Each structure stands twice: as structure tokens, then as C-alpha cells.
Amino acid sequence: MSNLQINTTQNVNLNYKIVSIGERIVAFFIDAFILYLYAVLVDFIGDAIGYIYEDKWTQRGLVALIFLPAMFYSLIMHSIFNGRTVGKMLLKMRVVKFDGSPVHWSNYLVRWMLRLVDIWIFIGSIGLLTILFSEKRQRLGDAAAGTVVISTKNKTKVSHTILEEVEEAYQPKFTNVILLTDKDVRLIKETYRIARKSNDFKTMTALRVKVDSILQTKSELYDIQYLDTVLKDYNYYTQKL
């Protein structure tokens, strides 16, 4: 695999591995098998509809309508599951922007539209050739959308950066955390991580007091809860900017 270094919006460099063409093919066939099963299901439903409606045109129209989501499978899955289809989930890979910016739905749309050229019209030959001869292992759709498919198996651990895992439904508590800088947060997180690992509660309390004096939050949360919340809130707001 080739390596790809992505600079995040918080100026943190993360090293990823670009997936091989073999892995992409396996993921494609997994998704194709799922679509095949869906087509079989639709066929059974079509037979059932045939017993209800004698009009063949009505039957075909309803079957086509039920099968329609399969036509947009790749676009829907990538948009909903953050750059992943079932095949990509199983093989631990996802689509990202190679410049580190968030992937927009329009990028997924471009990739999906160019599947017509990459995969369907030329029976996958264009997609295979562009992946083989591209430095970032991009098919035509990836190149046009500015995306690349990376492996999430051995990516840089979040704990080694200022980043924090923040759920989409997360509700921030302290709005003024944006007064902190990346340098401040990196120092806070490193001190917090070492103090918590060694059960150094004295350092933990001193750190909490220092952060609280900067942010003027006057929170009643315990030290660990407070510092953890500050780190998550900072990530929440800076990722939204």
C-alpha cells in the first residue's frame, strides 16, 4: 500500500495507507453481492405483485420503483455512512478528501456519476487502469471528486493528537473553549493523559484550576469530567468552523 499524509483542519498530520486495488475489488464484489440479493428479493416481490395486479405495466412499474434505491446504492451508502459502503466497512476502508477537508455530498455525487465510465460502460477497465497508474490509487471518479480510498486499520491513534472522538449528537457545554489554541489543547491533553495514567490527582486538580481560570467556566464538574468535557467541546467547535 502507498502512504497518504492528511493535514486536518486542526493542523494535525495523520498518516493513512491507501488501499490496494485488490481490496477495492473485493469490496466492490461484496457490494455487488448485496445488490444481487436485493434484486432476488425484488423479483419475489414482483411475482407477488403479479398476483394482485393483472396489468403487466403496473407490475413492471412497481417493481422498477422498488428496485430504484439499488441504482443509488453507492451514493446513498457513502453519504449516510461517512464514505463507506458495506464492502468498505467489512474491509475497514473509507473515502476521504486527500486535502484533509470534509467530504461533501457533492463529492460522493461526482464519484457515483463517473462510475458509469469507470465501471459500467467499459466493464471496469477504465477504473482499473486509472487506479493502477495513479499515484494515489484513484479511479477517474476519485480524481474528479478530489477523494481517495484509505485504510482505517492502522491509522494514527486519536489519543496521539489533540483530536477527540466526538459523536454527531454530542452537545457541548462550554462555548468559550474556542479561546484556547491548538498549542494550549495539545499541552492540556498531554498533561491530562499522563496525570490520569499515573493517578496524579494533584496535577489533575492544578491543571483543572489553570484551565478554569482561562475559560472562567466556574463549573462544578469533577476534574476528570471537566477536562474531558473541555477537550471534547474544543474539538466539537473547531471541527464545525
Rank of each mutant, 00 (worst) to 15 (best):
I52A: 07
E23L: 11
L215W: 10
T9D: 11
M93I: 02
K232E: 04
L114D: 02
L35T: 01
T217M: 11
G46A: 06
Y108S: 03
I194L: 13
N82S: 12
S79A: 14
R94A: 09
F201W: 13
L68C: 11
Q171C: 09
I80V: 14
I34K: 08
R186F: 11
L179V: 09
S79Y: 05
L180F: 12
L4N: 03
T8Q: 06
H104C: 13
I34N: 02
L90M: 14
Y108F: 10
S219N: 10
V95G: 03
D182Q: 15
D223R: 09
T161S: 14
V209N: 14
S134E: 03
Y16F: 13
F98W: 10
M93P: 01
Q171H: 12
D184M: 07
E164N: 09
L227T: 14
L207N: 08
G22L: 06
R60H: 09
Q225S: 15
D184N: 14
V166F: 11
V40H: 06
A145G: 01
L128E: 06
V96H: 05
L116H: 00
L62C: 04
V95C: 00
Y38Q: 02
M77E: 08
E54R: 13
L68A: 15
R115P: 01
V211F: 09
P69D: 01
V185H: 13
F174S: 02
L179Y: 12
D99M: 07
N154I: 03
K153V: 09
S2I: 11
K202C: 04
A70P: 07
N107V: 08
S125C: 07
L68V: 11
D142R: 04
S106F: 11
Y108M: 08
F67Q: 14
T58F: 03
I30E: 03
G100R: 08
T8P: 10
S125N: 07
A195Q: 07
A39Q: 07
A169K: 15
K210P: 00
T156E: 14
K157I: 13
T9Q: 14
R186A: 15
F81K: 11
L62N: 09
T181A: 08
T205N: 14
L231H: 01
V12Q: 15
V209R: 14
T161R: 11
I45C: 02
T175F: 08
D43M: 12
D233F: 00
I150W: 07
